[in-house]
């Protein structure tokens, strides 16, 4: 019954993340936006692997007569979660460095490089 509802959630969270990146001014908020896009894409990958009535692909011997959920997207998602936390940490540490040098974390004030 859930049908396409997870995909709607994916679209909403990617959209919210892009909105934050396009219109909000705080550097830490931008990091949250990247996180939100990443959550959406992780949900997208997991939903792709979902098969109705399947079992989790963690048994060495599957119960007879039952399909398994696809394991590959789950492996991809694990990789992407780990990469995501590394990205967040790097972005946030740079935001702290910008605060140290510029005294602000507003996007439209921290722009010495232009033109």
């Amino acid at each position: 019954m859930i049908g396409n509802f997870p995909y709607v959630t994916v679209a909403v969270s990617i959209g919210c993340g892009l909105y934050i990146l396009m219109f909000q001014k705080n550097l830490i908020k931008l990091a949250i936006g990247i996180n939100l896009i990443e959550s959406g894409i992780n949900l997208f990958l997991i939903t792709l692997g979902y098969r109705k009535g399947g079992v989790a692909p963690i048994y060495t011997q599957a119960p007879a007569g039952k399909a398994m959920v696809l394991p590959t997207p789950q492996a991809l998602t694990l990789t992407s979660i780990v990469i995501g936390v590394a990205t967040s940490a790097l972005v946030l540490s740079m935001a702290m460095m910008i605060y140290k040098h510029y005294g602000t974390i507003e996007v439209d004030k921290a722009r010495r490089l232009r033109g």
Binding site: L18, M22, Q24, K25, L30, V107, D108, R111, R114, G115
Partner: peptide, 8 residues
């Protein structure tokens, strides 16, 4: 502008 919002 050098504004990150414009980049994205």
């Amino acid at each position: 502008t050098g504004n990150l919002n414009d980049y994205s």
